[in-house]
């Protein structure tokens, strides 16, 4: 039976397989939307995203800010009567959006990149360096400066870090995990 009229069947199938989530089971009870923290601030509620994925509406889904405003709080998944882990689905959609270069919330993506760069080079996140990099790359130089200074004054922002001994191992983990993508 052909389900998708204007959408892409292959988009639905790819996301279904990559996320491992039984997307087809969603029957729009909207329990996810009711408990969703970001629902009021986002383009779409989780159940709307699910329906759009079912219909294969690739562009609409990947351009929605909902996939980026999802904080992975997991309330939706915990309440879903059909056992769909919607936060996992949102992760798959973020990954796919990055792969296809449809990045609606650029700063979230920049943050993820500078965070992982820090882990890759030191083995741990050095919060000061990571934040400085984020500020430079996002161009958002001045927000939260007061918090940063207050934390620095309280000794919560150490400037130097030793990093871990097993850095080669960490780099190897990153390399091997990129192969699998």
């Amino acid at each position: 039976m052909e389900v998708c009229l204007n959408g892409s069947r292959s988009f639905y199938e790819t996301i279904r397989a990559k996320s491992g989530q039984p997307i087809e089971l969603c029957f729009q009870c909207q329990k996810c939307a009711t408990g969703c923290t970001m629902a009021a601030d986002a383009d779409h509620t989780p159940n709307q995203i699910l329906r759009m994925v079912q219909l294969g509406l690739q562009e609409k889904v990947l351009n929605s800010n909902s996939i980026w405003l999802c904080s992975s709080c997991e309330t939706c998944g915990a309440r879903c009567p059909n056992g769909i882990d919607i936060a996992e689905l949102m992760d798959t959609l973020k990954e796919t959006a990055v792969e296809t270069n449809m990045i609606r919330e650029k700063n979230v993506n920049i943050f993820n990149n500078v965070f992982l760069d820090s882990v890759k080079s030191m083995g741990r996140v050095h919060e000061v360096m990571m934040m400085a990099n984020y500020k430079l790359k996002s161009g958002d130089l001045f927000s939260d400066l007061d918090f940063g200074l207050a934390m620095f004054a309280k000794g919560k922002m150490p400037l130097f870090t030793k990093g871990v001994k097993a850095r080669d191992k960490v780099r190897q983990i990153f390399e091997r995990c990129s192969e699998y993508k």
Binding site: K94, R124, V164, R176, S178, K181
Partner: peptide
């Protein structure tokens, strides 16, 4: 000894394999 970062949100938002392998170490 010599623990490494768990990868946090940034790993699980971008690379599922990495998100499981970093904590496994």
């Amino acid at each position: 000894e010599d623990w490494i970062c768990c990868g946090a949100t940034s790993a699980h938002s971008t690379n599922q394999k990495l998100a499981l392998t970093l904590p496994a170490q």
